[in-house]
Amino acid sequence: MNVILKIWRQPSKDTPGGFETYPVADVSPDMSFLEMLDVLNETLTQSGKEPIAFESDCREGICGTCGLFINGRAHGPGLGITTCELRMRRFKSGETIVVEPWRAKAFPVLKDLIVDRSSFDRIIQSGGYVSVNTGNALDGNTLPIAKTKADEAFDAATCIGCGACVATCKNASAMLFTAAKVSQLALLPQGEVEAQDRVINMVKTMELEGFGHCSNTGACEIECPKQISLTHIARLHREYLKATFK
């Protein structure tokens, strides 16, 4: 199959960018979207043109590095997948495909399709953990945890920190990401001691980093590759209320 790509190019953070068009021929439907970009980049390099900067690492949907806005959707067509899991069989031959970076104030573009998501790290640094030093733990089976709770905590913990929720949200809110961590730890007894500080500090950092407010539209849940549920946002709200109205 053949496709036409319209790709966002931007030399650096402080230089304005714009779209450029690249036709790609002989694409196999079994190829991944990123492999198709690899092929394009090889031809660009060969012909002395600068290849397109984009990020990926595991290429199997778990590290959260990749993340492109494709035809107006975070991680492209398909539900429950990341950009690196997207295969070309989801597109039609002859189709024009528009490829952009995540767009959010808190995710500045570094180059072409690469954005800076270190704001996510700072949200976690402000409280997304249990404060336990190495060497302090009791036997792992000392504290039984109901399987249903453990499973629900696990569902929240599968967030890969990709940022699709932010890119999809019209307010560029990081609520789903933040809630996933708050909720995971709120569901487990280990997280209880610090629960109140955690939720307050993480929400505060989220605002300081320039993420927008959550208006409960729910678009994030739909585009989240790990299908993190909105119920975790509800739990964050409850935790927040508990912490602020003491």
Binding site: V130, A137, A150
Partner: peptide, 20 residues
């Protein structure tokens, strides 16, 4: 390691009785 990771809130698989 298992003890420490449980203390960190790592959600290991559990049996219905709540144990690992």
């Amino acid at each position: 390691i298992i003890d420490h990771c449980v203390a960190q809130g790592v959600p290991f698989a559990r049996e219905y009785g709540g144990l690992l």
